[in-house]
């Protein structure tokens, strides 16, 4: 069930330049959230920010009942969010969207993330492990500075890394990773992707060539987050559909890519 309520800020961390990690809590447990779902945050103290900001769920700490949001600072709204203090409250509409495909025992899933698109893969990976599936991460960034919180990913599954400047892992894009080479010893049953569109298109193309099932998480600009305003549509085989409601996760075969 969707809720719109004030959550309490319990931690504001800065894992790297240009990022903020918000940890929120509530009296009610965060049990109802699927990896790949998102929230819409009402931003206070930013006159230029009128609409809510959609942010993916980075992690749900069930023990501490914390909802973690990893946010890249791109404009006035996200900057205002980075200035929150412990004890502040934040009005959040959640959980929104469909989320990634739920895991089944024994399957091996490659989770490909680029830039801040790595954020939702952490919670998804955690839920895959919970479902006795095996997540393998392939994370790409411009440089090692963009590949943050790697230890957390490593605690959940194997991690492969690419950087455009070669400062960590394979040099190049995620599609240049050794793990995707025909000769790679790592085999997987399906792929879930979140990142910049060109990266997702490239991974989708790779998956289609290899005949591997692939889903991608889109981030079209949106207003309501509930499927009412019809602003965030993506063209699919079923016509224009709302990314906020029928997505953000789509099977690549449903998209006109």
């Amino acid at each position: 069930m969707k809720q719109c309520k004030d959550l309490k800020v319990v931690a504001v961390e800065y894992p790297s330049d240009g990022y903020v990690l918000l940890k929120l809590t509530d009296d009610m447990p965060f049990t109802d959230i699927r990896g790949g779902q998102f929230v819409e945050i009402k931003v206070e103290g930013s006159p230029k920010t009128f609409l809510r900001r959609p942010i993916s769920v980075n992690y749900v700490d069930l023990e501490k009942n914390e909802l973690h949001l990893l946010i890249q600072l791109v404009g006035d709204g996200t900057r205002a969010l980075s200035e929150l203090k412990v004890g502040d409250s934040l009005n959040v509409l959640f959980p929104l969207g469909n989320g990634f495909t739920q895991g089944t025992a024994g399957e091996k899933v490659l989770l490909v993330g680029g830039g801040v698109g790595i954020a939702p893969l952490l919670e998804y990976g955690r839920q895959l492990v919970e479902a006795k599936a095996v997540p393998v991460f392939l994370l790409g960034g411009r440089s090692s500075k963009n590949l943050i919180m790697l230890d957390q990913y490593k605690s959940i599954g194997e991690v492969y890394v690419t950087t455009e400047d070669g400062s960590m892992g394979n040099k190049g894009f995620v599609t240049d990773s050794d793990v995707l080479k025909e000769s790679s010893a790592v085999k997987f049953d399906r792929i879930s992707v979140c990142g910049p569109k060109p990266m997702m298109v490239a991974v989708a193309k790779f998956a289609k060539q290899r005949g591997i099932k692939c889903e991608v998480s889109l981030e079209n600009m949106m207003a309501c987050g509930l499927g009412a305003c019809l602003c965030c549509v993506e063209k699919t085989v079923r016509g224009n559909v709302c990314v906020c409601k029928e997505g953000p996760v789509f099977d690549v075969n449903d998209l006109n890519w």
Binding site: K48, T49, F50, L51, N220, M221, M222, A223, C229, L230, C231, C232, V233, E234, K235, N240
Partner: peptide
């Protein structure tokens, strides 16, 4: 309907 993008945030409002 029209193609994406269909929305732009503006000062104290939005275009659609």
């Amino acid at each position: 309907g029209n193609d994406y993008p269909r929305m732009a945030e503006t000062p104290y409002g939005m275009l659609n």
